[in-house]
Amino acid sequence: MNQIFYVECDATHAGNFVFDIPQGHQCWLLVITKTPAQFWVNGELRLYPAHSAVLYRAHQKIYYRACGDEYINNWIRFESNEPFVAKTTLPFGIPFALDDPDYCHALFKLLIIEHNFNRDYKEASIDYLLNTLFNKLLESYFHEGFNAQYYTLLKLRAAIQSNPVDEWSVTKMADFLRISPGYLQILYKKTFGISPMEDVINCRIKLAKEYLLQGSHSIAEIAFQCGYQHVEHFCRQFKKVTGSTPRKYQLHTGNFIGKCSGLQG
């Protein structure tokens, strides 16, 4: 069972903000920072960067404060006897870096919606969202090899996947991260197990499959809509990735739409 007492996104405070509860709350408190802040950890005040998460158990001393012109965070105060919370292996009162703060921020916004509206499956939805949030916290805390570029790499990959038809190049991607093209390729492959341009190609081919399944576009039209200037180049890459030509893929899926643009499979 989970019960949310209060949840808030983008709570903004002035530079003199201090949150000091020596005896702690009578429930759980999870804080995710969006600006740098100072936290009381192991008997001293320490500075932590933006996109840090810290979990406080009931009756644990809580002290944190702004360290700039303003302090912004997401936070949730809640009760839970679920194992993913009660038996968590996350540290208590010690901030750690988040791998994907945008994802966690989205979960917070959904928790706010579920908390504020009485819907048929409100309790179940909150349980699933909190469980997912704690999974993401665990992934971040136990992530080996976390580096300063990881969050930016995630944003780059999300941009590629949401718009694969863009004119992507290694140079353009490197500029996105403000690093050299060579270092980008090493970092990207190490992080995701695939080169950046292979990722672009895979995303384009995935999009092409959707168009082919719809059966309402010619091969030439699909090639253009997936970011290819030449149909032959599209067909070569499609076959390299899938093992089949676009035409044969249509036939195999039962969505053959006839001859398109005079091309043969």
Rank of each mutant, 00 (worst) to 15 (best):
residue 194 I to S: 04
residue 239 K to F: 01
residue 182 G to C: 07
residue 221 E to G: 11
residue 168 W to E: 09
residue 217 H to A: 07
residue 207 L to F: 00
residue 190 K to M: 02
residue 187 L to M: 03
residue 180 S to C: 08
residue 237 Q to M: 11
residue 245 T to S: 15
residue 160 I to L: 03
residue 215 G to K: 14
residue 181 P to Q: 06
residue 213 L to H: 13
residue 244 S to K: 13
residue 202 N to W: 12
residue 170 V to F: 01
residue 163 N to P: 06
residue 231 V to Y: 01
residue 185 Q to E: 13
residue 233 H to W: 10
residue 185 Q to D: 05
residue 207 L to S: 10
residue 213 L to F: 08
residue 193 G to T: 09
residue 194 I to Y: 04
residue 155 K to H: 01
residue 177 L to Q: 01
residue 155 K to L: 07
residue 200 V to P: 08
residue 179 I to M: 03
residue 168 W to V: 03
residue 215 G to V: 14
residue 224 F to Q: 10
residue 165 V to P: 02
residue 212 L to W: 05
residue 176 F to N: 00
residue 246 P to Y: 05
residue 244 S to N: 02
residue 230 H to I: 14
residue 208 A to R: 10
residue 177 L to W: 01
residue 221 E to A: 14
residue 204 R to Y: 07
residue 188 Y to K: 09
residue 157 R to K: 15
residue 181 P to Y: 04
residue 182 G to K: 07
residue 247 R to M: 15
residue 203 C to R: 04
residue 204 R to M: 06
residue 211 Y to W: 04
residue 201 I to Q: 13
residue 182 G to F: 12
residue 205 I to D: 03
residue 162 S to E: 12
residue 165 V to E: 12
residue 206 K to Y: 05
residue 228 Y to L: 03
residue 235 C to H: 06
residue 233 H to L: 07
residue 173 M to N: 02
residue 184 L to P: 01
residue 159 A to L: 08
residue 238 F to I: 00
residue 171 T to A: 13
residue 185 Q to I: 11
residue 162 S to K: 13
residue 177 L to Y: 00
residue 161 Q to K: 11
residue 205 I to G: 03
residue 236 R to I: 13
residue 178 R to Q: 05
residue 196 P to K: 07
residue 177 L to G: 10
residue 172 K to A: 08
residue 177 L to E: 00
residue 177 L to P: 04
